[in-house]
Amino acid sequence: MKLARWITDSGNDGSVSEGFVIEDLLVSFPDGQTIADVLAGGLVEAHRLHERTNSAIGVPLSCARLLPPLIPSSVRDFVAFEEHVEGVSTVVDGKSEVVPEWYQAPTFYFTNPHTIRATGEEVRIPETERLDFELELAAVIGGVDGSDGENLDAVSAADHIFGYTIMNDWSARDLQAREMKVRLGPAKGKDFATTLGPWIVTADEFEPFTDDEGFLAIRAEAYVNGALIGADLMSNMGWTFPELVAYASRNSVVRAGDVLGSGTVGNGGCLAELWGRRGEFSPPPLQPGDEVRMVIEGVGEIVNRVGERVPAPPTEPARPRLRRRVREDA
């Protein structure tokens, strides 16, 4: 099953529709259900809802503009591909390596759920000279018997994976490099945009692609202006998606509507990896007018065009330490 959100070209009120993608039609959920409702109900209830959906009253995909397939309650992004870590580390901290700590446990950061973009949407450039993309697959969390996931093991965590969507973790590499030297981040270097889409494909659709260890043996590709930049298999992750979900829930909670990105695939899943390996900015950073297209087997594709640069107010440097720390009368 595929689930999507959209606005029709003929709609003048800007109202959002939510439902299933059935062949080349977009069909609204019955009873006014939303993506959030369906995720909370879980995969079994989603199949029951699908059976009650009347595909005869669908809207052609060609007559609609797709929106991000969900409004995430949170977005965690992992760094699960060893090859990516090795390549991009040169750009971030000046040397190519995979630190021993990477192998000990899957690492993630939280990114901004308020700057989610849709396929087809223009992504304007923030204050950066090194705009980059990151090709990822993301798991979307659903409810299980109406419950959140807390302190899950990998087996039970798999039940909380409702489905998958493509994720482009847009990155301002110069901002990222600066803030990570302060031992905090990435943050502002990732804060401006994340593309999710084109829809959510339910986890059961990927059972034929799952190997004996639980990895998804599906191909992921990234293109810039029609040229293939990088391609990898999702099965080259260091951990399976259920293991990522289990780690996220460790002494914490995963909830329906959460999104967990795999991290950037290797073999050219972003420009920074290639810059690190080649020792030069080749291919060059993204520029206004560039088109970034990502394709993942079994999911589909997302396409975004890079927009113009966005001016921002100046940032003041830190004040010097030579100032009074307490009141004189304290």
Rank of each mutant, 00 (worst) to 15 (best):
I71N: 13
F29A: 03
F81K: 03
R48P: 03
V140L: 07
F281M: 13
G279I: 02
G58Y: 05
S252Q: 11
R183A: 14
R183P: 02
L135G: 02
R277D: 12
P186D: 08
F78D: 00
Q104D: 11
E86K: 13
A157L: 09
V144L: 11
V79C: 14
M294E: 14
R327G: 13
G14P: 01
R76P: 00
N168T: 05
I161S: 05
E328K: 10
S17D: 09
K188H: 12
M234V: 15
S249T: 11
V245S: 07
W6H: 01
N267P: 03
A248P: 04
G197Q: 01
D24F: 07
L175M: 14
V292P: 01
R278E: 08
W275E: 04
I229V: 15
S147I: 04
G42D: 04
K95E: 13
E97C: 07
E136A: 01
V259N: 00
E121C: 07
T128E: 05
E18K: 07
V88Q: 13
R219M: 12
L216C: 09
S10N: 13
R250H: 15
E243A: 15
N112I: 09
P72L: 02
V38C: 03
V265F: 10
T119P: 06
L244E: 02
N304S: 10
V265N: 05
P106K: 01
E207H: 06
V155D: 14
A177K: 15
V292I: 15
W199Y: 12
D204G: 05
F29E: 00
D24G: 08
D191H: 13
W239E: 03
A56F: 10
E243G: 08
F133S: 02
P288H: 06
C63H: 15
P60F: 08
V326P: 02
F281L: 15
R309S: 12
G257Q: 00
N251Q: 14
I229L: 15
I7P: 00
I116K: 03
G268H: 06
V295P: 00
E280L: 14
A46T: 14
I125R: 07
E291N: 09
E86R: 15
P106D: 05
E308P: 03
P208L: 09
E122D: 11
G300L: 01
V254Q: 06
R65C: 11
E23M: 07
L216I: 08
L260D: 00
T194D: 03
A330G: 05
F215T: 08
E205N: 10
G257S: 04
F133L: 10
L66K: 00
E122G: 07
V299S: 02
T119K: 01
R309T: 12
L274S: 02
R65E: 09
H160I: 05
G32P: 06
M237H: 08
G263L: 00
H160A: 08
P186I: 09
P69S: 04
L67R: 02
L184C: 11
V144A: 09
T128A: 11
G263R: 00
C63R: 14
L196P: 00
R277A: 13
G189M: 11
V254Y: 08
I141S: 01
L228Y: 06
T53E: 07
T195A: 02
R321K: 12
D145S: 14
F206M: 09
I57C: 12
T53G: 09
A40L: 11
